[in-house]
Design a protein around this nucleic acid. Sequence first.
DNA 1: TTGTCATATGAATAAATGTTCATATGATAC
DNA 2: GTATCATATGAACATTTATTCATATGACAA
Lengths: 112, 112
Amino acid sequence: MNPVNTNPETVSAVKKKMPDESFLYDLADFYRIFGDSTRIKILYALFESELCVYDIAKVLHMTQSAISHQLRILKDAKLVKFRRDGKTIYYSLDDDHIVKILELGTQHLCEE
Amino acid sequence: MNPVNTNPETVSAVKKKMPDESFLYDLADFYRIFGDSTRIKILYALFESELCVYDIAKVLHMTQSAISHQLRILKDAKLVKFRRDGKTIYYSLDDDHIVKILELGTQHLCEE
DNA sequence: TTGTCATATGAATAAATGTTCATATGATAC
DNA sequence: GTATCATATGAACATTTATTCATATGACAA
């Protein structure tokens, strides 16, 4: 049950260099947002043009409520921003890193 | 219930430029792997050094079984590779994009 | 104010996911 | 062969999470 063939020096060396717990949790939270196809689709849609909530729903063939819930998550993570025009609210991408992150993921997928 | 103030031309234009459904699902699946703190920790640990399963468990203060389950996911996604040395199996990072992706996430988190 | 449009949100449900526990596999030493 | 070490895996459980439905909010028009 208790392994013997381990390397204690390496373990403590790696432990020392590990980032803070809280940072690693924040990082995982950040990537989790990209880990849902609906949110990925919203980001790709907004990559082309700012869109109101109902138009995003039409592009994705989903309900307004489902889109609104996901936009809230994207908004909290500061991945999208919005502006109001009368009754309509237009959403758009809020960060240049997003495009780069999506591109790197694409690269990884295309090299197999 | 049925909104009137939408933009049909924009909707169809965005629809045309949207990537394939299957690609977007694959992309979400890829990012979902980064969206768990245990897997993020494993990746950061391997960033320093190749490690056997039980030493990863010691670094993260988790059970061997939990680590092994997560390594399977990372292996299937081709984010880690392994080599056998006798009874021991050493895991290491398998892709340069991983480091870049982790760096971009870090940048995003640090600019708030 | 009243009515309508656009969006947001709370509760409920169903599905996905991570960890634990027990056990299996696979390699080495005797 | 048997025993032991290192890792893998299946099933069960608990937690998280995405969508739906109904309803609330908030802005504009009449």
